[in-house]
């Protein structure tokens, strides 16, 4: 009997400690929700957006305000990706822990080097980010750096579990390095292959694999494809016979279908990030899926 009591005591103590630990993590994009959940398995993680939504165009909905108001930490890509909606959420949520500059507001872009940075002019009508391409979760090496950044920040917010986060990170990195090795093998067979894209969603993966973007269906960054622009790509696409025309799940892919019909090049509609409610629900599965699809297309 005393044995059981002591066991119960330990259990209840554990429960108390556990509730104290359970961080509430708000992420702007699902890729960071998946990564955070791997690095903090105990945490309650919520992603503001999902794979079928264009993360540039999200509305500051009441439900998102409530979620951000209760978060201990918010993890977002930054680089201007959320500038159309996150500031409105922060303003309404009035949560001191996740205002800009607070330890609980983690923008990831400043910790890595983004591609496609450029000067913007004030009187420009283009919708581009001077901070560079914010879709950097599709580079396995950058993800590896960001896993450390996230762990560091979790340790800062939740110092009682520092050791636990460290152990989880070490294990995660070991697995991730193994995965990278197998992805590198797949990538080596895709190297040098030309590809047509719509928006810069897959640029980091294309760079990492060593494929080459020969055309973009968007006439200017962020501007949806037009018929005239698609028409201008027909000849080049026919000539260079790229491996595929890539679109992602949240895009309108009429133009890609049309170009595919005109040129006989395969149209591949791929997820731009993890699908938390589906099968491709973590970054490992996402890279597996993307690389195998590209392999088949080739």
């Amino acid at each position: 009997m005393p044995h059981i009591v002591s066991k119960l005591l330990v259990l209840s103590l554990f429960a108390v400690v556990n509730t104290a630990q359970a961080l509430t993590i708000f992420t702007c994009e699902p890729e960071w929700a998946a990564l955070s959940q791997s690095l903090a398995p105990e945490a309650k993680v919520f992603s503001a957006t999902h794979v079928y939504q264009d993360p540039h165009y999200i509305e500051a909905r009441p439900s998102l305000i409530s979620k951000l108001a209760k978060a201990d930490i918010a993890i977002c890509s930054g680089a201007g990706l959320e500038s159309g909606w996150l500031p409105a959420l922060q303003k309404r949520a009035s949560n001191r822990q996740v205002t800009d500059g607070a330890d609980g507001m983690l923008y990831l872009a400043p910790f890595i080097e983004t591609i496609g940075q450029h000067e913007t002019k004030f009187f420009s009508t283009e919708h581009v980010h001077p901070e560079g391409n914010p879709h950097f979760h599709l580079d396995p090496e950058r993800v590896s750096i960001l896993a450390e950044v996230i762990t560091q920040r979790l340790q800062l917010i939740d110092p009682d579990s520092q050791e636990q986060y460290q152990q989880t990170l070490i294990q995660w990195k070991k697995n991730w390095q193994n995965s990278i090795q197998s992805w590198q093998q797949q990538a080596s067979q895709l190297k040098g292959q030309p590809v047509v894209v719509q928006h810069t969603s897959f640029d980091y993966l294309i760079d990492w694999v060593g494929m080459e973007v020969i055309a973009d269906l968007e006439p200017a960054p962020g501007v949806p494809p037009t018929m005239a622009h698609a028409q201008s790509l027909v000849e080049d696409t026919r000539k260079s016979q790229p491996a595929a025309i890539l679109t992602n799940w949240y895009q309108n892919d009429r133009a890609a279908d049309w170009l595919s019909g005109k040129t006989g090049v395969q149209h591949l509609n791929l997820p731009a990030t993890v699908d938390l409610k589906g099968e491709i629900n973590n970054l490992e599965r996402l890279f597996d899926h993307l690389l195998s699809q590209l392999q088949v297309a080739k």
Binding site: E59, A60, R61, G84, K91, F122, T125
Partner: peptide
């Protein structure tokens, strides 16, 4: 037409 910084819109 808008130029420069653009405040995020509410719902």
């Amino acid at each position: 037409i808008g130029f420069g910084a653009h405040a995020a819109h509410s719902f």
